[in-house]
Nucleic acid binder design. Structure first.
Length: 839
DNA sequence: AGCACGCCGACT
DNA sequence: GTCGGCGTGCTC
């Protein structure tokens, strides 16, 4: 496999290191060749961050993607200005991975780089000003005003000032005008200074000075001296109590956290005096942001089924790159993961476990932390930049051979992955749609593993149909795990007919009689209830009772969402907000009512229907804070909540025995979404939510409210018949040419002028249509949402033949066509977005 | 994406 | 006469 590791990876002699192709964060689809100055040649290589001049004015930081000796033909390469690292921040495999991503997902390698680097590693340059050495206030022909004088005076004592410094100095909001004026008057110069955004966490520690630490007699003398100073004595005693220097003198080296003194309520001034008298000293220690946890020796006990599954997985790994573990909820996938991770780590490989965002906050992380301790790094979107950089460095240094993380953790600097696990593989959140690269992390992870010659294990209770298809066509290994732990039973499903109840006047506050009865029953038995509402397109909005008009966003083609709590209308696409209007904009009527079942409304309805129950809501609003989610879960686990209403989130990792009833308020919203995956999604979501009901002894109850109780999907859900539904859905997909039978590429055009986009989209569509590959094209059509942020959207959907080189040819020609479009002045302002494998 | 260069209108 | 509008082309 030597070619995969790149021809430039091996150290080369200096003569061959003349030029570097640098990846820059600019939207130009190529690398830029710079000259490597002789004096830098020694300490430069692939993956080093460098500073380069780009264009006339800009200094950018980029990453070296390639080192070579071919001088560019058409221009003289500029020199690299500086190297920022003493070791490569990025390894050659990562650059290969970015390049693959750029090609596959039709984006620029710079965009891939941008997505990969935690912003703490992206150096930002900050504009600073300094005195112009050529300036002489005596002879200058331009008079300065008072504010300009202040700045010049400050520069007399300080070499440089940032813009913010100047703003603070003058107490004005925007300094640009003044700076510009000073530049024109030739009094100052503006320059760019690169600053590293990552700052290590430092702890101030206190220890005895050399003299007292090594000499017991000195210490005894000290005690006599301070006998009359009880405050100082306390400080010393505290130190000796925490750090028994007498017994273990070497402990003094690390000393004690300064906070320990403050927390013990000791006198800070005494501490200072002791330091002044050279008894104690202070020093700074760089510490990790992550707690040190040692791994447990606890043996994982595997059931017979799990052992068999592991043997099967390993068997498949002999010949295939990917295996799919199809294990229903509660079938014990976690233990299998743990065992496989252990083995991979023992063989010296790195392991990546990918999880969807919401699953990361749950007990699984704690569970793994217990087993793998501080060998495990966690990469989460709620982590700060500094924390992310620490995980990044931890992967390089070998501190974290195991990482569990979200989508973006596929970009961490692994150099020897042995195993990649994608749990909840079917989750749509693995796909990133904005900004580019619009990648599917599950698919990219498989590619990543392949680059490392590692294996990928996909796990799900309800696999994506793509993965299941790959399993059935033997591309992936397939390992079913279908017995519930402790033989817990499948829940009992009840399909509740919304329309029937409505006719009979049994529908109260959107709850069918069955739903209400089952909830009441659970409450009577002191059991817990989960109510699920799909978020997608199901937010409450206002409607005018007189003319039927709903307030819409000024910038987007959507109705505004009603947020009762803040008394606001909001646009979920552009963030536009306005106070709830008093009257209808269209007819002036004041009869504006809220419709639609947002989680807030449901919570309210439930309060009315079950006034005695304790009800809580779990959605984006209530869990925005870092630990908001966890807090709600704990409350629920402790039994302080009877009914929990939530979105998607509640389907993940909630594992509470007292939940016996799960209600799905409107299954139709998922099922009749205009998307070829709607059926698959409905099946997955309903099954996943249902999996939260009844574990162990008690059989759970699931109530699914729908207007179409006869839809064929329900029969399969009720019987847990994944495969039957899969087969039916596949026939449809094959008939209408949808994945996995074709490759989808969505091309959308956006522009503020509707006529311009429409014309551009037509033109583009025609050009694409002329590409000589086997394909079907749909469109161009107005987007599902016709306008977002004042940009009109038109979309073309391309269904490409999967066999042969249709994909490669199409993507190649697409690139040329986009360039051609850009060269056309009529269309150059139209933004074209390419989404490969759209969701 | 920025940013410079360049060629046309409304101002001191 | 100039300042500045933004069309267009380039960035190693």
């Amino acid at each position: 496999m030597e070619s995969l590791f790149g021809d430039t990876y091996e150290p080369q002699d200096e003569k061959s290191r003349l030029y570097a192709d640098v990846i820059l964060p600019v939207p130009i689809p190529k690398m830029f060749t710079y000259k490597i100055p002789r004096n830098l040649a020694e300490d430069i290589g692939i993956g080093f961050r460098v500073m380069v001049q780009f264009g006339q004015k800009k200094v950018l930081t980029g990453i070296i993607g390639k080192v070579h000796q071919k001088p560019p033909k058409e221009y003289e390469a500029k020199p690299i200005l500086d190297v920022l690292d003493t070791y490569a921040m990025v390894n050659p495999l990562q650059i290969k991975f970015w390049a693959w991503m750029a090609e596959y997902y039709c984006c620029h390698i710079g965009e891939a780089m941008n997505a990969a680097l935690p912003s703490g590693l992206k150096l930002s340059s900050e504009s600073k000003i300094q005195l112009n050495p050529a300036y002489d206030s005596e002879t200058s022909m331009y008079p300065l005003d008072s504010r300009e004088e202040v700045i010049l005076q400050a520069l007399a004592s300080q070499e440089e000032l940032s813009y913010e410094d100047c703003e603070r100095l003058l107490g004005v909001k925007s300094i640009h005008g003044i700076i510009k004026s000073l530049v024109i008057k030739e009094a100052i110069l503006v320059f760019e200074k690169v600053k590293d955004k990552y700052s290590p966490k430092v702890e101030t520690r206190i220890r005895l000075t050399q003299e007292y630490a090594t000499d017991k007699k000195a210490l005894e003398r000290l005690f006599q001296e301070i006998a009359s100073k009880p405050k100082q004595e306390e400080v010393i005693l505290k130190y000796l109590q925490e750090i028994p220097v007498y017994q273990k003198p070497e402990l003094n080296l690390k000393g004690l956290d300064k906070k320990a003194f403050t927390e013990a309520g000791l006198s800070m001034s005494s501490l200072k005096t002791l330091m002044k008298n050279n008894v104690l000293e202070e020093y700074k220690l760089i510490i990790s942001r992550f707690e040190e946890i040692s791994e447990s020796k606890e043996e994982i006990v595997l059931s017979e089924e799990q052992t068999t599954a592991i043997i099967q997985i390993k068997g498949y790994f002999e010949e295939k790159h990917v295996a799919l573990l199809h294990g229903i909820t509660g079938s014990g996938k976690t233990e299998i993961y743990i065992q496989l991770i252990k083995e991979a780590l023992e063989s010296g490989s790195q392991v990546l476990l990918l999880l969807p965002e919401i699953a990361l906050t749950t007990h699984l992380v704690g569970r793994l932390k217990k087993v793998f301790g501080s060998k495990m790094g966690v990469y989460h979107s709620k982590f700060s930049d500094n924390e992310r950089v620490e995980v990044w460095n931890g992967v390089i240094s070998g501190k974290f051979p195991l990482v569990i993380g979200v989508r973006s953790s596929i970009f961490l600097p692994f150099d020897s992955l042995g195993l990649v696990i994608v749990d909840e593989e079917h989750e749509a959140s693995f796909k990133q749609y904005d900004p580019a690269p619009r990648f599917q992390a599950r698919d990219a992870a498989i590619m990543l593993a392949w680059l490392h010659q590692a294996k990928t294990l996909l796990g799900s209770a309800t696999p994506s149909f793509e993965s299941f298809y790959n399993a059935r066509t033997k591309k992936y290994g397939y390992v079913p795990l279908d017995r519930r732990y402790g033989d817990a039973q499948l829940p009992a499903y009840h399909i509740a007919d919304i329309l029937k109840d409505k006719k009979k006047n049994l529908l109260k506050l959107e709850m069918t009689r069955l739903m209400r009865e089952k909830i009441q029953e659970a409450l009577n038995n002191q059991e817990q209830v989960l109510i699920f509402q799909n978020r997608r397109g199901y937010s409450p909005y206002l409607v005018c009772e007189d003319c039927g008009v709903s307030p819409e966003c000024e910038h987007c083609d959507v109705t505004l969402t009603y947020h009762q709590f803040a008394e606001e209308l909001r646009c979920h696409y552009c963030g536009f907000k306005e106070k709830v209007p008093k009257a209808c904009h269209a007819c002036g009527s004041v009869k504006l009512v809220a419709v639609g079942l947002g989680t807030e409304r449901i919570e309210e309805s439930l309060t009315l229907l079950f006034p005695e129950a304790r009800i809580a809501r779990m959605d984006l609003d209530t869990t925005r804070s870092k630990y908001g989610y966890q807090r709600l879960l704990e409350e629920f686990g402790a039994g302080n909540i009877d009914i929990l209403v939530g979105t998607q989130m509640i389907t993940k990792g909630l594992d509470f025995e007292k939940v016996t009833v799960v209600g799905i308020l409107d299954a139709d919203r998922i099922l009749f979404f205009p998307d070829f995956r709607a059926g698959e999604r409905a099946f997955q979501q309903i099954t996943q939510v249902a999996g939260r009901a009844g574990r162990r002894e008690k059989k759970g109850t699931v109530i699914v409210q729908t207007r179409q109780p006869d839809h064929h999907i329900y029969e399969k859900i009720v019987n847990g018949n994944y495969k039957k539904f899969y087969i039916e859905d596949m026939t449809e997909r094959q008939k209408f040419f949808y994945p996995p039978f074709v490759k989808l590429i969505k091309i959308s055009s956006r522009h503020k002028d509707k006529n311009v986009v429409e014309k551009a989209a037509r033109h583009l569509h025609n050009l694409l249509n002329d590409i000589q590959v086997k394909k079907i094209m749909l469109g161009p059509e107005k987007g599902l949402i016709g306008k977002i942020k004042n940009q009109y959207i038109f979309e073309t959907l391309v269904k490409l033949d999967k066999s042969g080189n249709a994909q490669a040819v199409f993507k190649h020609d697409l690139q040329l066509i986009l360039e051609e479009m850009y060269a056309n002045k009529e269309f150059r302002s139209v933004r074209v977005v390419v989404d490969v494998d759209p969701y």
